[in-house]
Design a protein around this nucleic acid. Structure first.
Length: 683
DNA sequence: CATACATGAATTTTT
DNA sequence: TTCATGTATG
């Protein structure tokens, strides 16, 4: 298939400069909404034009989602074939690649296993002989931070001062031994071990250094010390001319992951580490109106600057930033709903739910917004809350539940009918599909058609009929069953009947993973069962519900979750999870001292902490395209009691009055005159 | 051993 | 207020 023609492109001068600087180290300081992904993707295309093979170009991101998006965008520019060959990956998957290929050099077999954080936690609990989960989590956290700084247990022992830290350092040594014995690595090792490997094994180092003709790094400000070292090693080369071919793209003002080891030192040291470094600043913003950008610039101006940068746009002033105060969390949520409804009712064209986001500092702040949005019947999604439904086992069960509610849900049918396997394969399903299409029936409706049986083998027919009966039977019982206990009995009985547990263990998964999956299944059953009992926390809820009714509401949640971001719903998100996203209308909630900037009762608020919180505020402001509301609480809940709410210092730092004055000097003069006249009259 | 009650603690998150 | 963990009891 021929590659689609590249869309007409026009890059601004700074973007062009970044794209065309091919042969040396390049730092692109990309302000919020300045088109950084465009720059990366265009640079990839330009590098290919200049003769690099796609396989020689590496683009490194932090999340799989970002990697996927980048590959997608590259595809539009360089074609599907080239896009497939590009190395677009996260730091971690690049690390896996290096370790799988060359891990032997540091005593790691090619088929090492990767422990997830639950595994690590269990290991540490066991190694430390402790049942206190919270303590084990603190150990885990401490060890991970050390690893992110490039320390091993010896290094950690040297700097550990508190008793708990010393304990963690001791455990870390034990932990390292266990990992080596298991031929296992943790997530942090996926960066640290490749670094160690490339440092030790000269041949491997040279291979990897020669492998890439150019490395691009997205969200560079989020890199930690180990990632920096790995990157530096990768783009070094004994041959001077082949060294330093990289592009780091980032924004020091959006560095909000210091608490997990990211360090701005990586940005700071880049010019001295690479004297030939080309520095380009992207300041033109293609997202927000003037009022919003001025507020953002004004807030971030209170931070010490690493690099000078000021966002501007050609969009005009737009609407002033709205400041509002609420009496309580609930009141704030009501005002957010009013914000949404108000804009929608006056919006000339229909403004969709997806055009709105409510952003806050901490996850627990979502609750009142969920309640009020639900009450107002506005669909919403809480960011990060859907990953649970991405698990295969949960998807399987959800498919069954969807089928109970709506037997004609063909995608659900296809999933449910093969999980567990019941001797129905591609062939049978293809024939069934064909039959259904022919008679304009759903797959389920076709199940018992006599004329279908004639076209299929007896085993397939038996399997399909059995499946159909099973669904019908379950539907019958689900319709009548209410109450937590009865629901649990029904659902576990059903799982036993269909042999789902054996199905999990019979698959390709390891016994351990299968057990974990089964655990998820039981949790899921529990969750549904509880819902069948007391209803939920909704005051309007009518006591207990039947299993079928609950399945009904689940299928709504699932249908939202499955269609992902494209869903037309209001977004509720933490500021951290909102980075990189944008919405026409943003409601920034709980902008109070103690919340944003966050203030812990135990840890002191160092200037660095406050600066990172300020960047968080900056990220929040710059998510908005047209309308921004900034809300603070007059009274807020803190633990058990309610305390007085103090507006965040960041609100004053937005200097809204001043920008309003700048916007309309005549108006201001008029006011002053009127005031003067009034005084004269009074005096 | 499992369930019920009390007590205490409440950031941000990806791989 | 809610959630999770720990203890006490059946």
């Amino acid at each position: 298939m021929p590659a689609p023609p590249a869309p007409p492109v026009s890059l601004n001068p700074a973007q062009l400069e970044a794209v065309h600087h091919l042969s040396g180290p390049c730092l692109v300081l990309a302000g919020a909404g300045s088109g950084k992904t465009r720059v990366i993707v265009h640079k990839i295309a330009r590098l290919m034009q200049a003769g690099l093979e796609p396989g020689q170009i590496a683009a490194i991101t932090f999340t799989n989602k970002a990697a996927q998006e980048m590959r997608e965008r590259a595809k539009a520019l360089v074609g599907a074939r080239a896009a497939r060959e590009l190395v677009v990956s996260t730091f971690h998957s690049l690390g896996v690649r290096i370790l799988r290929q060359d891990g032997e050099a540091i005593g790691l077999k090619a088929r090492f296993s990767i422990l997830d954080s639950d595994d690590v936690l269990a290991l540490l609990r066991e190694a430390g002989g402790c049942s206190d989960n919270a303590l084990a989590k603190r150990w885990q956290w401490t060890i991970s931070l050390w690893k992110n700084q490039g320390l091993d247990s010896a290094g950690a022992a040297a700097i550990a001062s508190q008793p708990e830290e010393r304990m963690a350092a001791q455990l870390m040594a034990l932990y390292e031994q266990r990992l080596a014995a298991f031929q296992a690595v943790d997530f942090d090792d996926l960066i640290g071990l490749p670094l160690k490997l490339l440092q030790r094994d000269e041949a491997a180092r040279l291979r990897w250094q020669s492998r890439f003709g150019h490395v691009l790094v997205d969200e560079y400000q989020d890199t930690n010390a180990v990632q920096y070292a790995l990157l530096k090693l990768l783009v070094s080369h004994p041959d001077e001319r082949r060294a330093g071919h990289f592009t780091a793209v980032g924004d020091d003002d959006q560095s909000i992951y210091g608490w997990r080891g990211a360090t701005l030192a990586n940005l700071q040291r880049l010019p001295s580490d690479w004297p030939r470094l080309k520095r380009i600043t992207l300041e033109q913003n293609y997202r927000s109106t003037g009022h919003i950008l001025r507020a953002a610039n004004s807030v971030i101006a209170a931070n010490p600057k690493l690099f000078e940068k000021k966002l501007w746009s050609e969009f005009g002033d737009g609407e002033p930033v709205r400041l509002l105060q609420a009496d309580s969390e609930e009141h704030e949520a009501e005002r957010a709903v009013a914000f949404i409804q108000g804009l929608r009712s006056q919006g000339g064209q229909a403004i969709a739910p997806r055009d709105f986001a409510v952003l806050y500092r901490a996850n627990h702040q979502a609750k009142p917004f969920e309640q009020k949005l639900r009450a107002a019947q506005i669909p919403y999604r809480v960011s990060g809350g859907t990953s649970y439904f991405d698990r295969v086992e949960i998807k399987d069960l959800c498919a069954w539940l969807r089928l109970l509610v709506n037997p004609d849900d063909d995608p659900a049918f296809l999933r449910a009918v093969t999980s567990p396997k019941r001797g129905i394969g591609q062939q049978t399903l293809a024939k069934l599909g064909e039959f259904a299409g022919q008679w304009k029936l759903s797959l389920f409706e076709s199940l018992f058609a006599p004329s279908l049986a004639a076209q299929l083998g007896s085993k397939a027919v038996a399997g399909l009929h059995e499946f159909g009966r099973c669904v019908n039977d379950l539907e019958q019982r689900a319709r009548q069953t209410t109450g937590t206990e009865a629901a649990r009995t029904l659902l576990t009985g059903w799982l036993t009947d269909i042999g789902y547990e054996q199905h999990l263990h019979g698959g390709e998964d390891s016994a351990k993973l299968a057990t974990a999956r089964w655990g998820n299944v039981l949790d899921f059953i529990d969750w549904i069962a509880r819902r069948c009992g007391a209803g939920d926390d909704e005051p309007a809820a009518t006591g207990s519900q039947t299993v079928l009714q609950v399945a009904q509401s689940i299928s709504i949640i699932i249908s939202i979750a499955e269609r992902g971001d494209e869903q037309d719903v209001v977004t509720l998100s933490t500021l951290h999870a909102a980075k990189g996203l944008e919405w026409p209308h943003v409601f920034l909630a709980g902008v109070n001292e103690g919340l944003l900037p966050f203030r812990s009762d135990v840890e002191e608020a160092t200037p660095e902490r406050v600066q990172e919180e300020r960047r968080l505020m900056y990220v929040g402001i710059t998510r908005a395209r047209q309308t921004l509301a900034v809300s603070s609480l007059r009274r807020r809940k803190k633990g058990r009691d309610t305390v007085q709410g103090i507006p965040s210092r960041f609100i004053a730092e937005m200097k809204l009055d001043e920008s309003r004055g700048r916007e309309d000097p005549k108006e201001r003069l008029k006011k002053l005159r009127a005031e003067l006249a009034a005084r004269v009259a009074a005096g």
